[in-house]
Design a protein around this nucleic acid. Structure first.
Lengths: 144, 144
DNA sequence: CATAAATAGGATAAATTTATCCGAAATAAG
DNA sequence: CTTATTTCGGATAAATTTATCCTATTTATG
């Protein structure tokens, strides 16, 4: 469903949120250890998240990645996915037709629509805060 | 959502079904033209569908691909997807955890579950016959 | 200002997916 | 039996995704 890059990006963002809520900046090294991902690749994904202003980076000594505390509740899962995988999950035909719409649908158009709307709904109604809270409370996990 | 291979496989199977219902065998060449896919690659995918007994191949002169008429109504979209992409769509954690279940969930476990069940439901309750009928009646399309 | 610590980013490599090519094997028909 | 036709399957190539490495740039601190 999601690309590897997107999986890493989501987990990394959650981990940063958990730490930012406790005023701690984290490094790619720490992140990749905690979410069990390749470090250099994860660093690249973090760059994309920074460019899309999902997370903030602070260079130099005592630097690292963080998210403004107040922003954590407003960031949606959809924003993370969009920063990394773009909008391919939203648009585009399930069977790869260039033009697929009500007037000229692929054979699975309607049925596919339902699933994708469910996904879109999920991504747009899940906040980073919810996800981070489950990690903080130990109800959910980022690795193994 | 689906791999390219899977997209081609679904469209190819529908096209074969449409033609088999009118007692016509089709070649990879004809198929790839009608579904707008690379011919040799499509032929490889057809081999996988034959191995999984979704479609039948007849070698030699006057050969080609076909599906037993009576079988068309019984083949589910899920069988086509499974033949090509395997069961990765069903199992596996949305965030790539090796172990992800009720007792040890990833942060999106429950929400992801809902979307995937919707997808599974769609794949298992859509028959090849339905899809082929829409093509025959000109209500849906396999290319452009 | 010098130094150490940290992210940014380009170059490159490995792995996977997508795609092509060609000879082998099978089959219908003359 | 021979030939033409057609799928099968292995080898290979191209494209994309995933992953690594190294240097440049930034910044806090002494």
């Amino acid at each position: 469903m999601f690309s590897k890059a997107c999986e890493y990006g989501i987990k990394a963002t959650i981990f940063i949120a958990v730490n930012s809520s406790e005023n701690r900046r984290v490094s790619p090294k720490e992140i990749s250890e905690e979410i069990d991902s390749p470090q250099a690749f994860t660093a690249k994904i973090l760059q994309a998240l920074v460019r899309h202003k999902v997370v903030k980076s602070v260079r130099g000594a005592y630097g690292g990645f963080e998210i403004d505390k107040g922003k954590i509740a407003t960031i949606k899962l959809s924003q993370i996915v969009f920063a990394i995988d773009g909008d391919q999950i939203y648009k585009g035909c399930g069977l790869g037709l260039h033009t697929c719409n009500e007037k000229h649908p692929c054979p699975v158009h309607d049925k596919f629509m339902v699933v994708r709307e469910e996904l879109r709904d999920m991504l747009e109604n899940t906040t980073l805060e919810q996800l981070a809270l489950d990690i903080k409370s130990g109800v959910a996990f980022l690795k193994i």
